[in-house]
Nucleic acid binder design. Structure first.
Lengths: 224, 224
DNA sequence: ATGTCAGGACTCGTATACGATTCCTATAAT
DNA sequence: ATTATAGGAATCGTATACGAGTCCTGACAT
């Protein structure tokens, strides 16, 4: 864990101590402060937060279940490397799930839903830094799935997106990344307005798989 | 936690203490020993396994991430109730993911793959108790997805199936449950043999959604 | 008799402590 | 000079201990 990544060990929003640490480490992995394979020293994190190791370990156990880290017996915890093929599969899974979700959603959409989604889309367009893009990108996508009235499905999609956040940020940072994303968002929104569930579904699938392709054209070169 | 459910607190397969407890509690929830909403007393579990609370809490933290239990602040851990609509959504998500997985898989299947799947299918047909049915049912399904060469997707499907295991067991216990499942398994297998990915995909979707429907015709009456 | 409040028992959440295992380093032998 | 080995430092995994908060019970007032 680099020093840079832990400038601000404030309690944040989490209610319990373990929750705060959980969010913090997850954030550090998402924004690239913690690199793949890097060990996470329990005592070090504990000292930084002025707590014992116990809440740290509990946070790490949750992160293990979420796939972000791995406990190596008697060796400690490391950030779990996500291989390029695995990233591709996760994007593909997103495409499958999100295209279905929007397909369910479109027939149920109301004027308010469309207005909310449109607002998210506009905010995404004007956002400044990559952290905002990432957050607003999710807000836009998820707002399109809400009318499907399938909270379990949306929550699963959210979990998968969290796991990908780090790579989404890289993709959005690419020169063409954000511009294309925004165009495609508008196209999806138009399909929703037109009530064309099949088209919205297909555009969503292609939108996600397109991000996947553009990321992989870049990845072999450099990792952040 | 009932006494019945904890007859055999052996270390099982898990390497670390926490892993053993994790598998044990997860199993107790899967087989219905632990009912929805039932509190899990940390000290009680710790005493039963002759360990302290710490590994128990770590196991529970993983189960929390997997959705099996919820930590209520200063109140303890309870088995998380899965509502009927949520069960329906989980089945639907399975149908989406597994129909896609088999669609990817069929074009890549070899004679050996088909033989393995066929063997699972036969074993399922002849299995005796519900725990075996459940295990062999998963072996059959997963064997059909392996050739898709998408380990992430298969692992996600497995996770979702584990979450549903308890309700799958109920469904298979229903008078018609196992027989219909077996017929449908054979039909899916035939489609794979014929190399008809679209048909296999559709049959898989219907197979899972059919189990969903038959379970829900039953559920409002009695929970195990 | 019923509602309210105080006191105790219980459970949780976390700090501290300690043995076990692993990793690093310095020394010695070939 | 290079390799093997022994000893120490560091880290992990878990037991024990304790304060904080919650729930239950029983006495008291109305």
């Amino acid at each position: 864990m680099t020093t840079q990544s832990l400038i601000k060990p404030e309690p944040e929003a989490g209610s319990s101590t373990a929750d705060a640490i959980l969010n913090y480490i997850r954030g550090a992995i998402a924004d690239g402060s913690l690199n793949d394979g890097e060990p996470i020293r329990q005592d070090e994190v504990a000292r930084r937060f002025n707590v014992s190791k116990i809440p740290v370990r509990e946070a790490l156990k949750r992160l293990e279940a979420e796939g972000f880290v791995a406990f190596i017996p008697n060796r400690g915890v490391v950030v779990r490397a996500v291989s390029d093929p695995e990233i591709a599969q996760i994007f593909e899974t997103r495409a499958i799930l999100e295209s279905n979700a929007i397909g369910f959603s479109v027939p149920m959409m109301t004027a308010e839903s469309l207005a909310r989604a449109s607002a998210c889309c506009a905010a995404f367009d004007e956002a400044g830094d990559v952290a905002q893009w990432s957050a607003l990108n999710w807000q836009f996508h998820s707002s399109l799935y809400l009318d499907a009235q399938r909270p379990y499905l949306v929550e699963l999609i959210r979990t998968i997106n969290v796991r990908l956040e780090r790579y989404l940020r890289i993709q959005l940072t690419l020169s063409v990344g954000k511009g294309i994303a925004n165009e495609e968002h508008h196209a999806i929104l138009d399909a929703c307005r037109a009530g064309d569930a099949g088209l919205a579904s297909r555009l969503t699938y292609d939108h996600i798989m397109g991000a996947n392709k553009s990321l992989h054209r870049f990845l072999p070169g450099a990792r952040f």
